[in-house]
Design a protein around this nucleic acid. Sequence first.
DNA 1: GAGATTTACGAAAACGATTACGAATTAGAA
DNA 2: TTCTAATTCGTAATCGTTTTCGTAAATCTC
Lengths: 336, 336
Amino acid sequence: MVTLKDISESCKVSVATVSKALNGQSDVGEETSRRIRKVASDLGYFPNASARALKTNRSHSIGVLFEDKTGTGLKHEYFSEILDSLKVATESRGYDITFISNSIGRNQMSYTGHARYRRFDGVIIASVDFKNPQVLELVDSGIPLVVLDYVFDSKTAVISDNVSGMEELTEYIISKGHKKIAFIHGEDTTVTQKRLASFIKTCSKHEIPILQDYIKQAVYHDPKSSGLATRELLALTDKPTCIIYPDDFSYIGGMNEIEKHGFIVPKDISVAGYDGILLSKVLRPKLTTFEQNAEEIGRIAATKLIENIENPKTYIPETVSVKGHLIEGESVKALS
Amino acid sequence: MVTLKDISESCKVSVATVSKALNGQSDVGEETSRRIRKVASDLGYFPNASARALKTNRSHSIGVLFEDKTGTGLKHEYFSEILDSLKVATESRGYDITFISNSIGRNQMSYTGHARYRRFDGVIIASVDFKNPQVLELVDSGIPLVVLDYVFDSKTAVISDNVSGMEELTEYIISKGHKKIAFIHGEDTTVTQKRLASFIKTCSKHEIPILQDYIKQAVYHDPKSSGLATRELLALTDKPTCIIYPDDFSYIGGMNEIEKHGFIVPKDISVAGYDGILLSKVLRPKLTTFEQNAEEIGRIAATKLIENIENPKTYIPETVSVKGHLIEGESVKALS
DNA sequence: GAGATTTACGAAAACGATTACGAATTAGAA
DNA sequence: TTCTAATTCGTAATCGTTTTCGTAAATCTC
C-alpha cells in the first residue's frame, strides 16, 4: 500500500505538505500541489480510511438499523427502496453505509456499542420495534440520528404522510360514489393509528357512517390474514362496495378470496391498496393505491442526517413528512 | 470516549497489559485480567475500530457489491434475502457489511479504490454486470472475494444450481403428462443459458420435441415482456399445455394475459415459475415453482469468504453450487 | 530600502490501539 | 541455597493521517 510518506519521498517534500495538497488546503504552492497530485495518482494512492478516522474522529460512515421481529425488514419493497435511496444519497456525499447489529463477534454488543465501536458519524433507524430498550438507548446515545416513520421527541424524523395519504385515497373512493367502505388495517402501530384516524375523519366529513363491521384488523404484509378479513366482509348481509387493504401485497389474499366467491374486481366489488409497490402496477385490473415516496424519504433522511453531522452546533431537529401520490388504477368502480 | 489509557490509569497498569487482558492474551495474570475487564465494562469501554484496523491492517469489514444496470438489485427478493443472510452470517463472526460504490465523495472512485480506501478484508460480488471493466478490476485486485451466481477462474463462487433446478422442474412437469411445454427465458446470461440448456436436455431425455415456437425470450422480472410472450404462445394454433416463466414475478404478466383470454389455470393451461418468492406462495392457485435457497447461498458465501480471509495461505478457491427445491403448487395440472 | 505582511513549506505531536522485546518477580529443580 | 524456567508486566515503536505552529523566503508598503 502506498502512503503519504511514499509520495513525500518521491516528491522531495514533507508528508504534511502532501497531506495538505491532497486535501486542497490553501497553504501549498500551485506547482507543488500539481506535482504531488500527479505522483499520487501515478502511484495509485488511496488514503487510509482508518488512519484518517482515527485522527479526525470522523469515520464518514453511517450506520443503519433495519430490523424487525418478523425479519421481513429488507424483503419489504418499501424498505429496500428506502435503503437504496439512502445508499445513493449518502455515497454521493462521501459517506458509506454499514448495517448495525447487536452481535459483533462472539461478544454480544448493544446497538449503541456497535455504533460507538465503528465510530459511526450518524445513524438511521427504520423498521424496528421502537419500544425495544436497545433502540431507546441508541436514540438517547447522543449520536446524530434520523428516525424513519416514527417520532421521538427532539429527534429528526422523516415520515411518510399517512394522514394526507389515506385522506386522499378515501376522498377518491368516495368521489367514485362509494358509501359502504370497508377498512382492513394492520397491527396497532403509529402508522396504523394515523391511517385509521384519517380514514374515519374523511368519512365523517362526507357524513358516511362508520360501521364497526367494516373495520377489520389484520397483519401487514400478510395476505392470509387479509384474506380472512375479506371473507368475513363478504359474508356480511350488507356487503361493502369497496375494501381498502393494509398494503398492496396483502391485497393478494383478498383477491384470492374475492375470486373464490366468483366476484370480479371492480365489477362486483372495488378494492384499493397502499404502498404502490411494483406488484400493484402489473396486476390486472391495475390496483388503485397510494404510493409512498420511498425514494424521497431516503434522500431526505440522508440529507438531514449529514446536515446534522456536519453542523452539530446549528442543526435543529425537525419532523419532515413526505407526501406520496394517488395511483388511479382500475380497481375502483364508479358507482352510479 | 474511554480509551485503553483511561483503563490503565484507573487500574495502575500499562496500556499494553490492558490491551492484552482485553484480547485474552496469555501473559497477563488471572487477577489483573479480571480487574481490568471489570473496570473496562464499568467505564463502558469500546475498542476503537479505526485504531485497531490501522495497527492490525484488518478492518473486520466486508464490502458487498450489489448493483445492476436496471437498478432493481435490492428490490429483488432473491437478492434482498441473500443480503440478509450474508448479514447475519458475517456479523456473527465479527464482520460488518458495507456497500461498495464507485462514488465516494465528490471524487469518483473505482470499486477497487473504494475497497482499498476502506480496507475491506474481503468482498462479495453479486448482481452486477460481470463484463464491466470496473468489476473485472476488482476481481483481479487480489482482495479475497466470493462471487455469486457467476464463475471467474480460480475465484470462489457460490451459485444457485440452475441446472438441476430446471431439470427437476421440467421432470415434474413431464411427469404430469405434459409434452407441449413452452419456455420463456430472460436475457442472455450465464444463468439463462444454464436453465435453457437444462430444459432442453431434460426434454430430449424424454424424447419430447423442442419446438422453436415454444422458446421465447423475455426480460427477467418484467411481467410486461412475459405477458407479450404469453400472448404469442396463446395465439399459436398448436398451443402449449404448460408455460415455464423466467421467474415468479414475471408470471403475473402471463397470468393477466391468460385471464384475458378467458383461460383458467390450471384447468385450461398449466404454468410454472422460478424463484419461490413470497408472492408465489400466496397466489391462488398456488404457483408451482423452484425455490432457490437464497439463505444458504448467503451463508455459504460468508463462510467461504471469512475462511479465505483468515487463512489466506491455505485457502483454495472453489465453486459451490447450492441446490434448491421444487415447490409443488396447484398450477400444473395432471394430463390424462 | 526597512519594516510589515503574505506565501509556502516542514517539524513534530497526536489519534488509540497492538506487539516485540526485555525486565522483574516468582516458582521449581537440584 | 543457587540456578533455571516460567510467569507477569512494562517500554517503546509503530500503523498513516491530520494539524498546529514555527520559519524562511517572497512580496508589498511608503
